[in-house]
């Protein structure tokens, strides 16, 4: 604890900050709380639709591809890499905050750059994953005919297999619940949008640091506030990862 609060200290009698944080940081927390409910509502609606279906695709079958590995079956490998990148960028972010507290401008710049790199890598991975899913072709039995389709918000090729029916060496499936694509692309897209805005904020923070703005102010609190947002994005990914890839 960095705060030494004597016993019986009165926070609410006026003349002091009752939360012992600045206005800006408090408002960032309030915003993040509201964003928690936005993501919560999205994930809970996904859960509601999922449990209302008799069949839902197994993530180990859906997410088994890796760049440059062709048709190798590598369940969850790529998303593990994405998760690792995001955790790592959270660490570099907290290190930037740490250097900011010591008012070490070079240290803040260094760790901000690593965090920007991590965020950009994560976004690139997501772009690959989306492209792979949308352009992928899976043999699906639609109205008695075999069609090769990918996963979009209007079609889901990951349905149960048709017993004994093969096409070009692959088992033919029936279409899966159509809600899958909408929830997957909607929620990971909304999270990706948060990552993208986070990267923009980090770039802005880097430019401001470089210009000496925080040295002139005498504190690096802006780095802490953007850091809160960045950790929140990592926090949301913990639950997106859980709900879409693990369960």
């Amino acid at each position: 604890m960095s705060t030494h609060v004597p016993a019986g200290y009165k926070w609410w009698t006026g003349g002091k900050s009752p939360y012992n944080v600045s206005y800006g940081k408090l408002m960032m927390w309030i915003f993040l709380l509201s964003d928690t409910f936005t993501f919560g509502a999205l994930l809970i609606s996904y859960g509601t639709i999922r449990v209302s279906q008799n069949y839902w695709p197994d993530p180990n079958h859906v997410f088994n591809a890796f760049p440059l590995m062709g048709h190798a079956n590598l369940p969850l490998a790529f998303v593990s890499l994405m998760t690792f990148i995001l955790i790592m960028s959270s660490v570099t972010m907290v290190l930037a905050v740490h250097e900011g507290h010591k008012r070490n401008r070079a240290g803040v710049e260094k760790w901000l750059l690593w965090t920007i790199l991590g965020g950009s890598l994560f976004l690139s991975c997501q772009a690959w994953e989306w492209t792979h899913m949308i352009t992928g072709s899976h043999a699906v039995l639609v109205d008695g005919q075999i069609k090769e389709i990918g996963a979009t918000i209007t079609q889901n090729p990951y349905g149960p297999a048709v017993p004994g029916l093969m096409h070009d060496g692959h088992a033919v499936t029936t279409p899966g619940p159509v809600g899958f694509g909408g929830f997957f692309f909607g929620i990971t897209g909304f999270h990706g949008f948060h990552v993208f805005s986070g990267v923009c904020l980090l770039v802005l923070a880097f430019v401001w640091t470089k210009m000496g703005r925080f040295d002139n102010l005498g504190h690096y609190e802006m780095i802490e506030k953007i850091g809160l947002y960045w950790h929140f994005v990592d926090l949301v990914w913990v639950f997106v990862f859980l709900c879409f890839y693990l369960i």
Binding site: S2, N20, V21, H98, H101, K102, H219, E224
Partner: peptide, 14 residues
């Protein structure tokens, strides 16, 4: 203090 306001005693990274 390295914080934004003198009345705030809390600082990140204790």
């Amino acid at each position: 203090h390295g914080v934004a306001s003198p009345e705030i005693t809390f600082a990140h990274e204790p």
